[in-house]
Structures are given as structure tokens and as C-alpha cells.
């Protein structure tokens, strides 16, 4: 059976991991390649790098990070952040990333999804959606790192992204992000039921139980977390072990 995926996310700025990762035994906890290796060894199912570099130099450094990562791990990884054109996608995929994640650029110009899917295939194109609650069972799409409201309905945008050729949705519940009180279950369930492509739930992971909830009740195909793994609050192994005891299929 197809396994539910557990995906750590790394924020990278100018070639360094930010959000102070605290691991024992790492020579350089700021080195994205070393962290990618560690997570890959711990049986992460995929990785996501979010490039938050603001400068052109920082973006060039990211390509170097991608090449080194691809040469050192044997699990798939996605790169997001600052991808605005087919040329940007090409540069990142050629360097060895398996998928690219589009967020603000896709909202500003939805055709970018179609262009990417046509050239590289839908399986390469992840559309990341930052969602904030605006009433009962209604969520609005935010862009620019969650700063700008767009007036767009999250469910409609997810469906439009799928129609344009997205292969997967990375859905972040801004209301839950950083709170560690669990993923946005209702949001995730509604989006997952509204589209025919896989949905990665993000934002709110604080315990192993939260992963169970979002992968069952929330109907997510995969769950992403950052700080809970970076700070060794729980390990990927521990999350997977728990999921297995609860009958969720995971790659052990």
C-alpha cells in the first residue's frame, strides 16, 4: 500500500539553515546538506527546502546547495521560494531537485503552473498555499510569506491549481503554524476532498498524535513539520513508529 509521508522542511537563507536547528552530534547544524543527510538517514520520506534568501547571490548559492544535496541523498526533495519563471524552475530541477514549489508567483500569474507542468510534468510542480481562516469553514489565500491577503478562496484556488497542472498541494494552515497544537484538520480535509492530487499538510505539528490526526481525520497524504524535528522534540522514527501502532501505513 502507498505509505503516508513524513516530510521535514528546512528554511535556507544564503546557503545556511535558519531557525537554529539544535541537533546533537552534527558538525555544522547550519549546513543544509548535512541536515538533509541526517533526515534522509532517519527515514524521512522527502525533504522540502524553502529558500528565503532575498538576494540574487543567495539564490545562486541555493543552486549549489541543491547539487550537493542531490549528490548525497537518495530520497526526493522539493525546493520552494522565489521561483518566478520557467527559467528558475529549470535551474533548480537541473541542479537535482525533484520538484519545485510555487506560492506567490503562481497566485500572481497562475499560467506559470501550466507552463511548468507542460515542460517538466505535473509531478514536478507543487503549489504551496498559505491559508488563513476567514469565517466558518472558509479560508483565504495569503501570499508574500503570509503578509498579503488575496481575497481568493483556498478551496477554489487549490482546484484551479490542479486544473492548471499542479501535481501536489502543500497546504499551510497559518492559524496553526508555530502553535504546536495540531494541524488544521478541517482545512486539510476540505482541500484534500476537493482535489484529486495529493495534499501535504503543514503548520501546527507539536506531537506524534497530531500527525496521526491529520493523516487520518484530515485526509492528508503527507505531513510536513519543521521545528518539532529540528529541536529534537520528536524524531521521524518516533512519529512513524507511533503511526504504525495506530495502523497507518508508513515506510518504516
Amino acid at each position: 500500500m502507498l505509505a503516508k509521508r513524513i516530510i521535514p522542511c528546512l528554511d535556507v537563507k544564503d546557503g545556511r539553515v535558519v531557525k537554529g536547528v539544535q541537533f546533537v552530534g552534527l558538525r555544522d547544524a547550519g549546513d543544509p546538506v548535512e541536515l538533509a543527510k541526517k533526515y534522509s538517514d532517519e527515514r524521512a520520506d522527502e525533504l522540502i527546502f524553502l529558500d528565503i534568501s532575498a538576494s540574487h547571490e543567495g539564490r545562486k548559492t541555493m543552486v549549489d546547495v541543491i547539487e550537493k544535496t542531490a549528490a548525497n541523498i537518495t530520497i526526493p526533495f522539493t525546493v520552494g521560494g522565489g521561483i518566478n519563471s520557467v527559467d528558475d524552475m529549470k535551474r533548480i530541477l537541473r541542479a537535482g531537485a525533484d520538484k519545485i514549489s510555487l506560492n506567490t508567483a503562481a497566485v500572481l500569474r497562475p499560467e506559470l503552473i501550466r507552463e511548468g507542468a507542460t515542460i517538466f510534468g505535473s509531478q514536478c510542480i507543487v503549489v504551496a498555499i498559505d491559508a488563513r481562516s476567514v469565517g466558518e469553514n472558509r479560508w483565504e489565500v495569503y501570499t508574500h510569506g503570509g503578509r498579503n491577503a488575496t481575497g481568493r478562496d483556498v478551496i477554489h484556488w487549490a482546484q484551479e491549481a490542479e486544473a492548471l497542472g499542479a501535481g501536489e498541494i502543500l497546504l499551510t494552515s497559518m492559524d496553526d503554524d508555530g502553535e504546536k497544537k495540531g494541524f488544521g484538520l478541517e482545512l486539510t480535509k476540505r482541500v484534500s476532498e476537493a482535489v484529486g492530487i495529493p495534499v501535504i499538510a503543514s503548520g501546527g505539528a507539536g506531537s506524534r498524535e497530531h500527525f496521526y490526526d491529520v493523516l487520518t481525520q484530515g485526509k492528508a497524504d503527507a505531513a510536513l513539520a519543521a521545528s518539532i524535528f529540528h529541536y529534537d522534540e520528536t524524531s521521524i522514527h518516533s512519529v512513524k513508529e507511533y503511526l504504525q501502532t495506530k495502523g497507518v501505513v508508513v515506510r518504516p
Binding site: 500500500m1 502507498l2 520520506d45 509531478q123 492530487i197 495529493p198 497524504d221 503527507a222
Partner: peptide
């Protein structure tokens, strides 16, 4: 069901 068939399978 979801398409693509995406992820780890046995």
C-alpha cells in the same frame, strides 16, 4: 483516488 500515484509503495 489521488493521481499521481505519488510516494513510497511496496
Amino acid at each position: 483516488y489521488k493521481v499521481p500515484h505519488m510516494g513510497w509503495n511496496q
